[in-house]
Amino acid sequence: HDTTVHINGLRIEVHGASEEILKWIEEAARRGVEAEEIKRWVEEALK
């Protein structure tokens, strides 16, 4: 999927993410993980 995830006011563009990654992002956000940190993880995961 190409999608934009909104976390604590930060937009994260996610290209080619699976449902699993999207669920993981939402879970991390709920746990209060910094949005910048999530963004870094997602970029690494999608390389």
Results as ranks from 00 to 15, higher is better:
His1Cys: 06
His1Thr: 13
His1Pro: 14
His1Tyr: 14
His1Gln: 13
His1Ala: 13
His1Met: 14
His1Gly: 13
His1Arg: 08
Asp2Gln: 15
Asp2Leu: 15
Asp2Asn: 14
Asp2Phe: 15
Asp2Tyr: 14
Asp2Ile: 15
Asp2Lys: 13
Asp2Ala: 15
Asp2Met: 15
Asp2His: 14
Thr3Arg: 05
Thr3Trp: 11
Thr3Phe: 14
Thr3Val: 15
Thr3Cys: 05
Thr3Asp: 12
Thr3Ile: 15
Thr3Leu: 14
Thr3Ala: 13
Thr4Asp: 07
Thr4Leu: 10
Thr4Pro: 07
Thr4Tyr: 12
Thr4Glu: 11
Thr4Ser: 13
Thr4Ile: 15
Val5Gly: 04
Val5Lys: 04
Val5Asp: 04
Val5Ile: 15
His6Lys: 09
His6Tyr: 12
His6Thr: 15
His6Ala: 08
His6Ile: 15
His6Met: 14
His6Asp: 11
His6Phe: 11
Ile7Arg: 01
Ile7Lys: 02
Ile7Gln: 03
Ile7Phe: 06
Ile7Val: 12
Ile7Met: 06
Asn8Ala: 10
Asn8Asp: 12
Asn8Thr: 04
Asn8Cys: 15
Asn8Ser: 09
Asn8His: 08
Asn8Gln: 10
Asn8Phe: 01
Gly9Pro: 05
Gly9Tyr: 01
Gly9Glu: 06
Gly9Phe: 02
Gly9Thr: 04
Gly9Lys: 02
Gly9Ala: 03
Leu10Tyr: 09
Leu10Lys: 02
Leu10Ile: 14
Leu10Asp: 06
Leu10Arg: 00
Leu10Pro: 01
Leu10Asn: 07
Arg11Asp: 12
Arg11Tyr: 12
Arg11Gln: 13
Arg11Ser: 14
Arg11Trp: 14
Arg11Met: 15
Arg11Leu: 14
Ile12Phe: 10
Ile12Met: 04
Ile12Ala: 03
Ile12His: 02
Ile12Cys: 01
Ile12Ser: 02
Ile12Trp: 10
Glu13Ala: 03
Glu13Cys: 10
Glu13Gln: 05
Glu13Ile: 05
Val14Lys: 01
Val14Arg: 01
Val14Ser: 03
Val14Gly: 04
His15Thr: 14
His15Val: 13
His15Leu: 14
His15Cys: 08
His15Asp: 12
Gly16Pro: 04
Gly16Lys: 07
Gly16Leu: 08
Gly16Thr: 07
Gly16Ile: 06
Gly16Trp: 08
Ala17Ser: 08
Ala17Pro: 05
Ala17Cys: 00
Ala17Met: 09
Ala17Thr: 05
Ala17Lys: 05
Ala17Asn: 05
Ser18Trp: 08
Ser18Asn: 11
Ser18Cys: 04
Ser18Gly: 08
Ser18Leu: 07
Ser18Asp: 09
Ser18Gln: 05
Ser18Pro: 09
Glu19Phe: 11
Glu19Ile: 13
Glu19Asp: 13
Glu19Asn: 10
Glu19Thr: 11
Glu19Tyr: 12
Glu20Arg: 08
Glu20Tyr: 15
Glu20Cys: 06
Glu20Ile: 10
Ile21Ala: 01
Ile21Arg: 00
Ile21Thr: 04
Ile21Phe: 06
Ile21Asn: 00
Ile21Glu: 01
Ile21Val: 09
Ile21Ser: 01
Ile21Trp: 04
Leu22Ser: 01
Leu22His: 04
Leu22Gly: 01
Leu22Tyr: 05
Leu22Ile: 11
Lys23Thr: 08
Lys23Pro: 00
Lys23Ala: 10
Lys23Phe: 07
Lys23Met: 11
Lys23Tyr: 07
Trp24His: 02
Trp24Thr: 01
Trp24Val: 02
Trp24Asn: 01
Trp24Ile: 03
Trp24Phe: 05
Trp24Leu: 06
Trp24Glu: 01
Trp24Ala: 04
Ile25Pro: 00
Ile25Leu: 06
Ile25Met: 07
Ile25Tyr: 02
Ile25His: 00
Ile25Lys: 00
Glu26Asp: 08
Glu26Leu: 11
Glu26Ile: 10
Glu26His: 10
Glu26Tyr: 15
Glu27Met: 04
Glu27Trp: 05
Glu27Arg: 03
Glu27Ile: 03
Glu27Cys: 04
Glu27Ala: 08
Glu27Gly: 02
Glu27Asp: 15
Glu27Ser: 05
Ala28Met: 14
Ala28Leu: 14
Ala28Gln: 07
Ala28Arg: 00
Ala28Phe: 08
Ala28Val: 02
Ala28Cys: 03
Ala28His: 02
Ala29His: 11
Ala29Leu: 15
Ala29Gly: 07
Ala29Ser: 11
Arg30Asn: 14
Arg30Lys: 15
Arg30Thr: 11
Arg30Gln: 15
Arg31Ser: 13
Arg31Gln: 14
Arg31Asn: 15
Arg31Pro: 01
Arg31Gly: 08
Gly32Pro: 02
Gly32Lys: 02
Gly32Leu: 03
Gly32Ile: 01
Val33Tyr: 08
Val33Asn: 02
Val33Leu: 12
Val33Ser: 02
Val33Ile: 10
Val33His: 03
Val33Gln: 04
Val33Phe: 07
Glu34Asn: 12
Glu34Trp: 05
Glu34Phe: 07
Glu34Ser: 14
Glu34Pro: 15
Glu34Arg: 11
Ala35Val: 11
Ala35Pro: 13
Ala35Asn: 05
Ala35Ile: 13
Ala35Phe: 14
Ala35Lys: 05
Glu36Ala: 12
Glu36Thr: 11
Glu36Ser: 11
Glu36Pro: 04
Glu36His: 11
Glu36Ile: 10
Glu37Asn: 05
Glu37Ala: 09
Glu37Trp: 08
Glu37Ser: 07
Glu37Lys: 07
Glu37Asp: 12
Glu37Ile: 11
Glu37Val: 12
Ile38Asn: 00
Ile38Lys: 00
Ile38Gln: 00
Ile38Ala: 01
Ile38Ser: 00
Ile38Trp: 01
Ile38Thr: 00
Lys39Pro: 01
Lys39Gly: 05
Lys39Ala: 10
Lys39Tyr: 11
Lys39Phe: 11
Lys39Met: 14
Lys39Val: 10
Lys39Arg: 12
Arg40Leu: 09
Arg40Asn: 07
Arg40Ala: 12
Arg40Cys: 03
Arg40Gly: 04
Arg40Glu: 06
Arg40Met: 09
Arg40Thr: 06
Arg40Gln: 10
Trp41Cys: 06
Trp41Glu: 02
Trp41Phe: 13
Trp41Asn: 02
Trp41Leu: 08
Trp41His: 08
Trp41Arg: 05
Trp41Ile: 10
Val42Cys: 02
Glu43Asn: 07
Glu43Cys: 03
Glu43Trp: 06
Glu43Lys: 06
Glu43Ala: 09
Glu44Trp: 11
Glu44Ile: 09
Glu44Ala: 13
Glu44Asp: 12
Glu44Cys: 04
Ala45Asp: 01
Ala45Lys: 08
Ala45Trp: 15
Ala45Cys: 09
Ala45Asn: 09
Leu46Ala: 03
Leu46Arg: 03
Leu46Asp: 01
Leu46Phe: 06
Leu46Trp: 06
Lys47His: 10
Lys47Arg: 12
Lys47Pro: 02
